[in-house]
Design a protein around this nucleic acid. Structure first.
Length: 535
RNA sequence: GCGGGCGUGAUGUAGUUUGGUAACAUGAAGCCCUGCCACGGCUUAUCCCCGGAUUCAAAUUCCGGCGCCCGCACCA
């Protein structure tokens, strides 16, 4: 058995992951999180929020999974997310339509059956009048379409960031590798809005010496963020900053950073919306390098797309440092003449007039209004050179997007922390999860099941839970077996009540990774564990 | 989607060649034992992926479906 198989079997046995709908034969690409699995996943998402919401000052929003056709048409997903595929009837090869040679199989020349694959799940809104819709392929779009109100919420100060943690859906052709490729998956995405020529981060200097393993066509080495930026390897400061944040986050949830690298996308593998992209890849003994986080510069792509499709102004306003004076040729309507001739229509005509493109020697203007053609000569306007003061300008913000695949990271947290050690000629399994991530923080055991020790242990379990610490009481089997059970699910501490406890109210606390023990006052355990978790 | 392999208690496996009462280990529950690292004792529960065919009889043979694994393709 390799690591993946061991983890899959442990995960099912101990309540981390179950294949979905198993009693109905199972459904490929779907997994259930079990009782312990969801505790761990929730902790990962909480830690993610600490990084992006607390520290980076983003705000989180929640938008629907079901997304109207028009939105995804505008974003490019309807067209770009479709794969036209030809399958050779002779040799069975499947290829993209553009790779066909004269509509025949490029390998054996056989006839080809064409089909198209849209990787989005389709659905309909409304029971009677059915409007076509899709399950969202990414949470990002829900943020983009809310840009105008969010911009207002942030009181028009750029840059700002909005995040969303939730489900995304992709109807994969053939999902495999368990939780690595799901059809319904959890993602945590941050959309950070910047002025196009100012993709910087105020705290970049704090992380500029942090190193990352960078891989691109020309490069494969450990390099400081600042250096990579200077050399133009990473396109801008914000991108580099969030790559460092990603590394810190992954390390915090228990990823082995020796098995982390950032790989730059080649031009042709970039998503339709991206113009620079670095993937955080994690190494698996089973699967090799796997993309788990994508950090993309989406430029103005999405906001522009939604602006074009809906006519909504998705621009932000930037004040110039100093107001700029601009000279231009302007047309100034003469309201007295217009009023006398056109009466009620005068104001509307004047507004139209101001929009006209003119030059210094324009003497007549023709307007088309409500199907009516109106000729105006110089008695109705003046043409003048005017000097205007512009306070600033409007622009479509650029977006830097770190996008995390929670389920994949979840798997890697397990794989990177899965340890086997030899213990008295037997393989002994433990998961060395960071204490703050562990689903169960403490096991509480009576050394023996008599003389009142179980009662004391039960009380301690209760005290811990009252203090906010997930603890489990266990009296079944030998003490060693109970330690082993806890080690296998990554519980960092085991508290044992022994006879000394009855004398002096102390207990032993045993560390998962070293099996060392310390003696601690019963009343202080809760605080002690909380402190340990901060380490 | 195509080709190959596989599907047996919660987990890992044997049994399928040669059709006839499904076994082992781990895990789990209960009781006992146990003065700190899975090693003890007794008891209990839990399995042949689903559907069809052949047969007196199918875990075993055949067909179809679903799922898992490998390869090809796909993975914005």
């Amino acid at each position: 058995m390799d690591v993946y198989e061991k983890i899959t079997s442990l995960a099912k046995r101990r309540g981390f992951l179950y294949p979905s709908y198993e009693i109905y034969g199972g459904e490929a690409g779907f997994y259930d999180y079990g009782p312990l699995g969801i505790l761990l996943k929730n902790r990962m998402e909480e830690v993610w929020r600490e990084y992006y919401i607390l520290k980076e000052k983003c705000y989180e929003i929640a938008t629907p999974v079901i997304t109207p056709y028009a939105l995804l048409k505008a974003s490019g997903h309807v067209d770009e997310f479709i794969d036209e595929i030809g399958t050779c009837t002779k040799c069975g090869l499947s290829v993209k339509v553009e790779e066909l040679k004269d509509d025949r199989c490029p390998v054996c020349g056989g006839a080809v059956e064409k089909g198209s694959l849209n990787l989005m799940f389709e659905t309909y809104i409304g029971a009677k009048k059915k409007e076509k819709a899709f399950l969202r392929p990414e949470t990002a779009q829900g943020i983009f379409v809310n840009f105008p109100v969010l911009y207002e919420f942030f009181r028009k100060k750029m840059p700002f960031g909005v995040v969303q943690v939730g489900k995304g859906f992709r109807n994969e052709v053939s999902p495999r590798q368990g939780i690595i490729r799901l059809r319904e998956f959890s993602m945590a995405e941050a959309e950070l809005f910047f002025e196009p020529d100012n993709k910087t981060h105020p705290r970049f200097h704090e992380v500029k010496d942090e190193t990352m393993h960078l891989v691109s066509d020309e490069l494969d080495s450990e390099m400081a963020a600042g250096e990579a930026l200077q050399k133009g390897i990473i396109g801008n400061e914000a991108l580099a900053y969030y790559m460092v944040i990603t590394k810190k986050f992954l390390e915090r949830v228990g990823i082995d950073t020796a098995k982390l690298r950032f790989r730059q996308h080649k031009r042709d593998e970039m998503a339709h919306y991206a113009n620079d992209c670095w993937d955080a890849e994690l190494y698996s003994d089973r699967f090799g390098w796997v993309e788990c986080v994508g950090i993309a510069d989406r430029s103005a792509y999405d906001l522009t797309a939604h602006m074009t499709a809906t006519g909504t102004d998705m621009r932000a306003f930037r004040k110039y440092d100093e107001p700029r004076k601009i000279k231009r040729t302007a047309i100034l309507p003469k309201m007295d003449a217009l009023g006398k001739t056109f009466r009620g229509k005068a104001k509307k005509i004047a507004d139209e007039l101001r929009k006209c493109k003119i030059s210094g020697d324009t003497d007549t203007v023709t307007l088309n209004m409500d199907g009516e053609t109106i000729e105006l000569d110089a008695t109705f306007f003046n043409v003048e050179e005017v000097e205007e003061t512009l306070a600033g300008e409007k622009f479509v913000p650029h977006v830097i997007e770190p996008s995390y695949g929670i389920d994949r990271i979840f798997y890697f947290v397990l794989e990177h922390n899965y340890k086997e050690v030899e213990k008295e000629n037997e393989t002994y399994v433990l998961i060395t999860l960071p204490p703050s991530l562990a689903p169960i923080k403490a096991g509480v055991f009576p050394l023996v099941n008599k003389d009142g020790l179980p009662d004391i242990a039960r009380e301690i379990e209760r005290e811990l839970r009252d203090g906010g610490i997930m603890a489990i009481y266990d009296e079944s089997g030998s003490i060693g077996r109970r330690y082993a059970r806890m080690d296998e699910i990554g519980t960092p501490f085991c508290i044992t009540v022994d006879y000394q406890t009855k004398d002096d109210d102390t207990v032993t606390v045993r560390f998962r990774d070293t099996t060392e023990q310390v003696r601690i006052e019963r009343g202080k355990i809760t605080e002690w564990i909380k402190k340990e978790m901060e380490k």
